[in-house]
Design a binder for these strands. Structure first.
Length: 496
DNA sequence: TATAATATGATTAGCACC
DNA sequence: GGTGCTAATCATATTATA
């Protein structure tokens, strides 16, 4: 976009602002708010330098700021919004650079893990020489721990790595499909959880992806699947990738010292009105920029509760339909039919990001041009089904398991509204899906092509202050039912 | 009685620094 | 390798309101 922009103009940065300039100097200056507000001190600077100072004051490095100004043209023409969006794009591109297309997939995914292993190997050797077996075992276990890669882009994402996708990977023996399966859960679990999940799901390495590369909100998730990974394609049109692109009206009220370009994870509850009121009162004490400690207070609350600017000193949580849009669902997907606002937030917060999942499932379009039979566990509001539908993959038969009546109503409503021609079987509880029942359904429909599900994250998610008990917690232990049912489907498929 | 609103930290990981 | 900081996070329990 920026390169095709008509007002592209070179804007030479004077040498004193070159990239090797010590940015701590600027930090020191910006820490004194009186200096920044003092017109006399800044009046001697050029517009370019003022803009550069403003961007530095917003927390960007001088390098990022000057590069953005080079790309966007002269400072008077390019707004701060354009410059910060440009910096966001540059940060995304930097993430892509860390993605090394020449390496083997496993190495690329776990390059950070390799570094750790190298660091620890020397320790391991010295302990070995001392013949301390207990320590050996402990360190080996630590080395086996699954680490989350940075950047969190899995085998690639459309907006960054289109030209250098991974074309293949080596699945463990016996893990290949069909039937294909797709499992999802939160990436940031207590230690060891993903190791356990991976061990059950046939030792397949998780693909960790942050949905901030698919939409304007972060969503750090791990996916374990045995799908092919070549010739993936995204849903079109690509959703807006920045807050300002997704919510243009917020530009009018967005202060320069709030440097967010992406929202954080969309959760199951929103911030309270009292909290946004407290922020408003705190901001109204200042005519221009609030002092730094107030800025920090407001920024922290904004990040914690995903607030957006809707007026002067006015912050607000996202509306339900805005969350629907960010997650890739059709507008009003969760609206109506006797569903309360609170329940909408809860159902949406527990759901897939549709564009992300669709990208992974897109390879099925070539494999099953006539459509698929789907076993959908913990279906929720039907994120996987919406993704498949938007990909143009026909849903022939769907066995959907979902405990929440509210969610079942939302999903059935979508199924009817979209005039699905396939056959939908709804079951409220995974316990009802035993081998006997599975056998009957599979005989009737001719087996499943895809088993998809994200098991409950209640006891894994960081937001849970009360019962973050790990994979064996009350709700999250239902993962073992996902495994049980998946394994039954695989066994029965092979018998046929 | 049902729904809505509100208050409630800890566990990770990464980083700079020593 | 220790320490102190920043940062993010598919939620639950209790209280208020309709």
């Amino acid at each position: 976009e920026l390169e095709s922009s008509p007002k592209k103009q070179q804007c030479a940065i004077s040498s004193q602002w070159s990239s090797d300039y010590d940015e701590s100097f600027l930090d020191d200056l910006s820490d004194t708010d009186s200096w920044f507000d003092d017109e006399e001190n800044t009046s001697s600077l050029s517009d370019k330098e003022k803009t550069l100072l403003t961007l530095a004051n917003m927390g960007y490095t001088v390098e990022e700021a000057s590069l953005a100004m080079d790309r966007c043209g002269s400072c008077s023409e390019a707004s701060l919004d354009e410059l910060t969006d440009c910096i966001c794009a540059a940060q995304m591109a930097k993430a892509a650079d860390a993605y090394l297309p020449d390496d083997k997939p496993a190495k690329r995914l776990y390059n950070e893990y390799d570094k750790l292993k190298k660091r620890k190997s020397s320790v391991y050797e010295s302990l070995s020489r001392k013949n301390q077996r207990g320590y050996e075992k402990k360190i080996l276990n630590e080395n086996e721990m699954i680490r989350i890669p940075k950047p969190m882009i899995g085998f690639g994402v459309p907006c960054l790595t289109e030209s250098c996708q991974v074309t293949d990977r080596n699945l463990p023996e016996g893990a290949t499909g069909p039937p294909y399966f797709y499992y999802e859960n939160v990436a940031l679990t207590p230690k060891g959880v993903w190791d356990s999940i991976s061990r059950f799901l046939y030792d397949i390495e998780p693909e960790f992806v942050d949905s901030k590369y698919f939409c304007a909100a972060a969503r750090k998730r791990g996916y374990i699947h045995n799908l092919p990974i070549h010739n993936r394609f995204p849903l079109l049109p690509l959703p807006p990738l920045t807050i300002h692109a997704a919510f243009p009206l917020t530009r009018n009220w967005w202060p320069t010292w709030d440097t967010r370009t992406k929202l954080n994870c969309l959760q199951t509850v929103i911030g309270s009105a009292k909290m946004t009121h407290r922020i408003r009162k705190a901001l109204e004490n200042w005519d221009r920029e609030p002092p730094l400690h107030v800025q920090k207070y407001v920024r922290d609350e904004c990040r914690k509760w995903n607030l957006v600017w809707v007026g002067r000193n006015k912050l607000a949580p996202l509306e339900c339909d805005e969350v629907e849009m960010l997650l890739g669902f059709p507008r009003n997907h969760t609206r109506g039919g006797g569903i309360s606002r609170t329940d909408r937030y809860k159902s949406l917060g527990n759901s897939f990001q549709v564009d992300t999942v669709a990208y992974h499932l897109s390879v099925l379009k070539y494999l099953y041009p006539g459509g698929i039979n789907l076993l959908s566990l913990f279906s929720g509001i039907g994120g996987a089904e919406v993704a498949l539908h938007r990909l143009g993959i026909t849903l022939k038969n769907v066995l959907s398991v979902e405990i929440s009546e509210v969610n079942r109503n939302i999903f059935r409503s979508w199924w009817e509204q979209t005039n699905q021609k396939g056959n939908l079987i709804e079951v409220p509880d995974v316990q009802q899906v035993d081998d006997n029942f599975l056998g009957q359904v599979m005989d009737s429909v001719g087996g499943f092509d895809l088993v998809v599900g994200g098991s409950p994250c209640n006891n894994l998610a960081g937001s849970n202050r009360v019962s973050r008990d790990g994979l064996d917690g009350k709700q999250s232990a239902l993962f073992y039912d996902y495994y049980r049912i998946l394994d039954s489907v695989r066994r029965m498929s092979r018998q046929e």
